[in-house]
Simulated assay, not measured.
Amino acid sequence: MTTAAPADRTVLPPLASVYRSRSAVELKEFFRQRESVVFTLLLPVLLLVVFGAVLDFDLGSGVTFTQYFMAGIIAAGILGASLQNMAISIATERSDGTLKHLAGTPMPRSAYFVGKVVQVLAVSVASIVVLLLVGVVFYDIDLPSGTDWLTFAWVAGLGAAACTLLGIAVSSLAKNGRSASATVTPFALLLQFISGVFFQFSEIPSWMQTIASLFPLKWMAQGLRSVFLPDALAADEPAGSWELGRVALVLAAWCVVGLVLCVRTFRWHDRG
């Protein structure tokens, strides 16, 4: 009696290899889209150049507005690379059938999200490096020193994680990339105005400060100000200090909220 030969099974590559391949695809797709590169990488630089040239005045303690603005524009750059980028790109991929196609392939679904996270990290780091380079070369920005770099890293990392998860969740609200852009971009711009990006946070009306404190951008900008500004300017913050412990708690809480929203709302297929 002969036994039947086992059916051929497709041998999938190692998971790490799949993650690397998907991450490379995400990075290539991003840098091939001129609109994404311009609005995500170049727009923060242009804003730094314009505001740095127009609003070059002293805030006290020998601190220029450009030094103050550096923290906010870096936070805004991370917001653009994460929340805005994720919401628009995922909504576009869902509406054009890309997500449906990927869901039907042998690729682990986790690889898609790993690729997106790698893209956000790479673009965020590129944005930060370019902004710091422009700030140092053209505006004599004082860089963080010592343990301030560690604070810089965890604030930027937690902020990027929170905004990425929120962007993935928001993508499910839009029908396509255009509607996502029309919804998310004005919202992000409004957040920047009330979160201490374009103005000193202490000069913003208190009711706007309260609204801003409900979202991660305000806390990310505040945490980054602590590494670019002297401790004397902490007195201008609403609580009279940098509140780094609260910054960490709020950003971590947004990571949890964003993850829950992603799990509950993410769709691989378009509606209908």
Rank of each mutant, 00 (worst) to 15 (best):
F30I: 07
A76K: 09
S21E: 12
A24C: 02
V18L: 12
L47A: 03
E29Y: 02
A71S: 04
E29R: 08
G77I: 03
Y68E: 10
A71G: 01
F65R: 03
R32P: 00
L43M: 08
F57H: 10
G77Y: 13
A71R: 00
F69H: 12
L41W: 00
L46V: 15
L79Y: 15
R22A: 11
T66S: 01
I78C: 00
F57L: 06
I74L: 13
L59M: 14
L15V: 03
E35L: 07
E26S: 14
T66G: 02
L55I: 07
V18H: 02
S21A: 13
I73H: 04
E26P: 08
F39Q: 07
L47Y: 04
A16H: 11
F31Y: 14
V37H: 06
L42H: 00
E26C: 11
T64P: 00
Q33H: 10
L46P: 00
Q67T: 14
G60F: 10
L46R: 07
S36N: 11
K28D: 09
A24N: 01
E29F: 07
V54H: 06
R34D: 12
A16W: 15
S23Y: 09
V45I: 15
V18G: 01
E29T: 07
L48I: 05
Q33E: 14
E29C: 05
F69T: 09
G72W: 01
T66W: 02
D56L: 10
K28M: 09
V37P: 10
L59G: 07
A53R: 13
T40P: 04
M70W: 03
E26N: 11
A71P: 00
F57K: 02
F69G: 09
G77F: 14
M70A: 07
R32V: 01
